[in-house]
Amino acid sequence: MFHYTLRRLMFAVPTLFVISFIIFALLDLAPNDPTGNLPLTIPPEVREQIRMSLGLGEPFHIRYLKWLQQFFIAEPLNFIEQAFGIEIGNSAERVRIRSWATRSPVVDLIVERMPQTLWVVGMSYVVGILIALPVGIISAYRQYSWFDQIGTFVSMVGFSVPTFFTGVVLIVVFSVYLGWFPSIYDTTHRVTGWDSFWVQVRQMILPVMVLALYNAAQLSRFVRASMLDNLNQDYVRTARAKGMKERVVLLVHVLRNSLIPVVTVIALGIPTIFSGAIITEQIFRVNGLGQLLIIAIQGADIPLVQTLTFIFAVLIILCNLIADILYGILDPRIRYD
């Protein structure tokens, strides 16, 4: 098991480096000037100074190495400090990546906005899985029944309709006509007691449901397919011949086998749901990381864009790694090679 994990790690690290290079190169080649947004009254020498301070004067590879050092060592330390409120080493001296627009360190911005995104994304994934699993299992067990047919149709609709449409429709129905939930996310809301918690839940329900339904639609189809593959296997017949209860046969023998690919799909789907969050945060005006990315892109705020994209890439690689490891844990046949 250890060797297996180690090997997976060894693939992940070089990939990470290559991706970081791509991100850096892409943004570096950008025909964009950070000082372009500054007032025109600033004299050119000062502009040049600003550019130098932002590290733009040096040749490509020096900048890349500095950027690497910044990203892999300095920023993670800053992140930990900011997130946990501790101090590591001589942090005041450390050079921070600063957003061009707000001038504050990128890491601060990210830490500030991360909880919102995590809450919405996390909740919706959990809800999505909780819906998809039973639906998929029952659809497979009662294949071609009316439950299955309706379920399949709803799933098809669920992942054909884009999230920005469902979000908008839900707002129209639940906020405009019914008035049950707020349509705009109150970003200043703090959860201090039970009432404020309830308010928070109410404003999170719509964005969570949008993402959850989209994920549930795709996942339930996959669960169904995986269950169907396993329901016809010989060992199911053996389990029945042993006199085991049908419920045990289905939920212990078949499910355990079906879950192996399903769990990997769930792990691999995490980056997708973060992408989906970019869109829902736009619709519901949630002040999360997705919205931050859009703002950064529209404002050509390169350091912020670089950092966010890179975090995204790390997330993808991490999830791939987790998926591989989980597969190894769940399938005993793989473990021992």
Partner: peptide
């Protein structure tokens, strides 16, 4: 019939490679 299966009548199937559940 479930009480008969496995306890009073035992069944051995043909293909041992697929009759056992691989994950248990």
């Amino acid at each position: 019939i479930r009480q008969v299966r496995g306890s009073r009548i035992g069944f051995v199937f043909q293909d041992p490679m697929t009759s056992l559940n691989p994950v248990f």
